[in-house]
Amino acid sequence: MNELSPLQLILNASAAVQFVMLTLLLLSVVSWVMIAQRWLVLSAAKKGVKNFEHRFWSGMDLTQLYKEGTEMQRENMQIVGMENIFRAGFKEFMRLRRQESVHRDAVMEGAQRAMRVAYSREEEKLEKHLPFLATVGSVSPYIGLFGTVIGIMNSFIGLANQAQATLQVVAPGIAEALIATAMGLFAAIPAVVAYNKYSANVDNITGSYITFSDEFSSILHRQIHSD
């Protein structure tokens, strides 16, 4: 019993502490899955914003841009973020404009509504899983602490049964209990960092979506009133 390794401690821990550790491990793995997945999604969205803005302001005809998107959809490629907003707004605008009876303002209103809906969908996509990361970040230290308290409680109960209290009696129990806290922190720290970074990123991206939809609706407005 001279050599104490963390692995040995984990394997020898009491059932409650082991359960807590297992929970924390699962939380950590799942939160890392979310971190990686969000990273991929958000970086793709950022790149999508940059690409689409470049194409949009390159002076290309809007109908041409819309047709390109349709081509891409036919090739089974995903259309992301800003382009979705553009497509929703433009589609609605064109459809309403074709009907003679509809007033200009109603056309504008319909296009804006369609863009708003598309925007909320995109935002929803971006913010998915972020609450989970926040929960892991704030809760897993408490779960670890819970495990530690139970572990230390057990080791003190063991100590109470001993006539002569030595360090050897309590030390393994406390070490094992502290592993639970360490695991809690290990799960929480990346989750909190990722949550903060990703929510800032999401704000950034949604901000550019809003700017774009305003700009686009002003273009549509100009177009509908120039006729």
Partner: peptide, 13 residues
Amino acid sequence: VIYNGYPVSIIAA
């Protein structure tokens, strides 16, 4: 990535 972000993430984690 957009379609299959999850498998890659799971493997990474």
